[in-house]
Design a protein around this nucleic acid. Structure first.
Lengths: 182, 182
DNA sequence: GTCTATAGGTTGATAGAC
DNA sequence: GTCTATCAACCTATAGAC
């Protein structure tokens, strides 16, 4: 409901109607509107925790690592971004979600750290240029995924951003040590 | 009001109180709540149009170009992102803003195009590696700015993403032709 | 746990005087 | 153009029967 009609239309009445129960049941289970929304958010943010917990295997092929992580991240963001945007509609909700994310240490910095650590290990093993900044490139990679997912939320007709594959190709090429470029 | 209390609390009554006029005046000038919000959005999106119109000078120093564009973009996003998020709270608002952005051809693709074109020109002039993909790197740069600005919206304590300067340094180093690395 | 009924409050919007 | 007064609609939340 949040995704296609917006959180403003997410009333107890509508939820009850869609669930085929009475309005009072909604309040019985979730206490109040805030409790209902909090439950929605905690449920919706779960996959993001799963992503944060899933590590990136060191030593693996860069293209494979980035493809898997990027696709997974974008998929999760597609599900989660509408909720994050919705939470901005009310200060109380926003602060509550902020506290939840702080408590579970969620945020883009997790992706930057995961991919950055991987890049740094590759570099230490001599599989990346010396002037390749692991965390700066990781930040850009996460940023590209984030922006692509954000733009899908308000789909503008026939305007496409560069596909993930092209971004990954570019990173792989740029990180390759001199004289051994792909 | 949207920025610090959320769009849900942006009622005609509150606006009137803050403006020191009566509630009826608000409706007289903006017809209805939708008209009021539309006016807010059109006003708030103006700086974004200005950025889209301001070109990037070809031939200029990469570090200067990226620093100016990146800072300007982040500054504008800081002002505009709360509005974009707020518009997601209601389907009607969201569609209206989407139409506005489509009409004026706004969106991250504009930044990718502007910076990508600049990179492509640098490459054509021999000032960038051959295996440097102008538009992929532009996408990552815009993405980093976008993500940094987005994260500032819900400030999580003591968690910092890599600063813009470090990202720019990284790009400058990576684009430098072999044998002439910075 | 679920229902019906309803209280209590807020909001968008209008009417009509000035 | 601005005001006061007011309404109808809607929403959250609760009471109480089953």
């Amino acid at each position: 409901m949040i995704r296609d009609r917006g959180i403003a239309r997410l009333t107890a009445r509508e939820v009850a109607g869609l669930a085929g129960v009475s309005e009072a049941s909604v309040f019985y289970h979730y206490k109040d509107r805030f409790g209902l929304l909090q439950a929605v958010f905690e449920e919706g943010l779960k996959p993001l925790r799963a992503l944060a917990e899933g590590g990136v295997h060191p030593g693996a092929d860069p293209r494979e690592v980035l493809t898997l992580y990027g696709n997974t991240l974008e998929e999760f963001l597609d599900g989660v971004l509408p909720l994050i945007a919705a939470a901005q509609s009310d200060a109380e909700l926003r602060d509550s979600m902020e506290a939840y994310m702080a408590e579970h240490d969620l945020g883009p910095h997790r992706g930057v750290r995961a991919i950055g650590d991987y890049f740094a290990a590759e570099q230490a093993a001599g599989r990346a240029r010396a002037d390749f900044d692991p965390y700066a490139v990781a930040m850009m990679f996460i940023g590209a995924c984030y922006t692509r997912a954000s733009q899908r939320e308000t789909p503008l007709p026939s305007i496409a951003l560069p596909p993930l594959e092209r971004i990954i190709d570019s990173i792989v090429a740029l990180m390759a040590p001199a004289g051994r470029s792909v």
